[in-house]
């Protein structure tokens, strides 16, 4: 999306994380989609070890 399109057509928003921003946009009738995502509970080093045990491809 170009800056011109953003100004003319308005933003298309995908919200990840806290709900408040997403809800505020809805209140202002701005279309938005919420992705229900949370960070892992464990440090990235431990998550990587778990993924290796599971056989995930680790970049």
């Amino acid at each position: 999306m170009s800056f011109k399109e953003l100004l003319e057509d308005g933003p298309r928003v995908v919200n990840i994380g806290m709900d408040r921003f997403y809800l505020d946009l809805l209140d202002q009738e701005v279309p938005a989609v919420k992705v229900n995502w949370k960070p892992p509970l464990v440090k990235s080093s431990l998550m990587e070890k778990l993924k290796r045990l599971r056989g995930d491809d680790i970049e």
């Binding site: 949370k38 960070p39 892992p40 509970l41 464990v42 431990l46 998550m47 778990l50 993924k51 599971r54």
Partner: peptide, 10 residues
């Protein structure tokens, strides 16, 4: 257990 810690969903 692995899915719980990966997704952050308990």
């Amino acid at each position: 257990l692995i899915k719980v810690v990966e997704t952050g969903i308990t």
